[in-house]
Every structure is written in structure tokens, then in C-alpha cells.
């Protein structure tokens, strides 16, 4: 079965946000909005303030890293216990704080990087062809709506043109 994909190019941010808002309000969930720069207002319309799950990667990595750093320093000292005068402890928290801190930061960042790659689905070489418009990394905003019927495509074409889309194309997509 084939469906229609509608690609709208906007030159104005407010028109694009109105278009995204209208699509979202209509209950369509299979759409992609692109922008040459991060826009919190656009994110707010689409995700309604829900925070990114990347934070869980970050926290897990940081906890893992901190534990690893402190354990590495502690267990390696316990493995070869040196007799230290004046009752100084083998496992010394102040002395190991630096290693623990650096390891926390390093693993927190590495986990954040993994979280970013996973959540953004990078490398994104397999994204749909409609997103490969060079203007979308320059000065235009794009809205790609997937899974439309013929009638819906016509209806949205008219509606988005009314909302200020400068260019609208409809392509056929074979979902099979």
C-alpha cells in the first residue's frame, strides 16, 4: 500500500510553528520538523516540555565512572598493600577523590555521547530523502508529514499553504 508524504518548506519561523502545531493538533504523529538552528519554541510545541532521555545515560555513566575510579584506586592499593607509617589508610578518600572525579566526568561524557548517538539515531544516513534538502541546513525550515491518504495530502497542502509554506511537494511512498 502506498501513502503520500508531504514536504513543506517555510521561510518564516512563526509560519512553521503554526504548521507544526496544526499537524500535531490533528492527531498526526508521523511527522518531522527540521530547522537550521535549535529552537526551543519548536521543541516546546512538539514535545510539550518532556525532557530528553539522554539524561539517564549521563547519570548512569557518571555513577559508573565514579564507582570505577574509586574502585580502581582502592583495589589496586589493597592488592599490593604497602606498610605506611603513622597509621595512614591504604584506602584514602581525599587522595582518591581526584581519580574518582576525573573518572566520573569522563564516563559521564562518554555515556552522554552514546545517549546522543542512540537517541538521535546517528549516523542518520538512512533518513528519508525529503529531508535531504540543502536549504534546510541554511535558511529554511521544513516540515515533512508522512502516511497521508490522497485526500489528506490535498487537504494539508492547502492548509499549510494558507499558513505560509513557501513550497509544498507531495511524493508517493510505498510502505510495503
Amino acid at each position: 500500500m502506498s501513502t503520500k508524504t508531504l514536504t513543506a518548506i517555510f521561510g518564516h519561523l512563526d509560519c512553521m510553528i503554526d504548521g507544526v502545531h496544526a499537524v500535531k493538533q490533528s492527531g498526526i504523529s508521523d511527522f518531522v520538523a527540521t530547522s537550521p538552528l535549535p529552537r526551543h519554541d519548536l521543541e516546546e510545541v512538539i514535545y510539550e516540555g518532556r525532557p530528553s532521555p539522554v539524561r539517564w545515560f549521563t547519570m548512569s555513566g557518571a555513577i559508573f565512572g565514579g564507582t570505577l575510579g574509586f574502585s580502581l584506586a582502592s583495589f589496586t592499593h589493597l592488592n599490593w598493600p604497602m606498610i605506611i607509617p603513622a597509621g595512614k589508610p591504604l584506602v584514602s578518600i581525599p587522595a582518591f577523590l581526584v581519580i574518582t572525579f576525573e573518572s566520573t566526568v569522563l564516563w559521564g561524557c562518554l555515556a552522554t555521547l552514546i545517549g546522543l548517538i542512540v537517541m538521535c539515531r546517528l549516523p542518520g544516513f538512512g533518513l528519508q530523502a525529503e529531508l535531504e534538502d540543502p536549504r534546510l541546513s541554511d535558511d529554511k525550515f521544513g516540515l515533512v508529514v508522512n502516511g497521508l491518504s490522497d485526500a489528506q495530502a490535498e487537504q494539508w497542502k492547502e492548509k499549510l499553504a494558507h499558513l505560509g509554506a513557501q513550497e509544498i511537494t507531495v511524493t508517493e511512498r510505498d510502505d510495503a
Binding site: S35, Y47, V54, R55, G108, G124, L136
Partner: peptide, 20 residues
């Protein structure tokens, strides 16, 4: 990395950037 500036990409990108 095949970046296209989609809403999904920017959302997680900005969160990650803040953590970095």
C-alpha cells in the same frame, strides 16, 4: 554523521550539549 537538523535530533542534541 548524516545530521539533518530534525526536531528529534535538536531535542537530544541540546540536552546533551547542556550536560557536556
Amino acid at each position: 554523521l548524516g545530521w539533518r537538523g530534525t526536531d528529534r535530533q535538536w531535542r537530544h542534541y541540546m540536552a546533551a550539549y547542556g550536560f557536556f
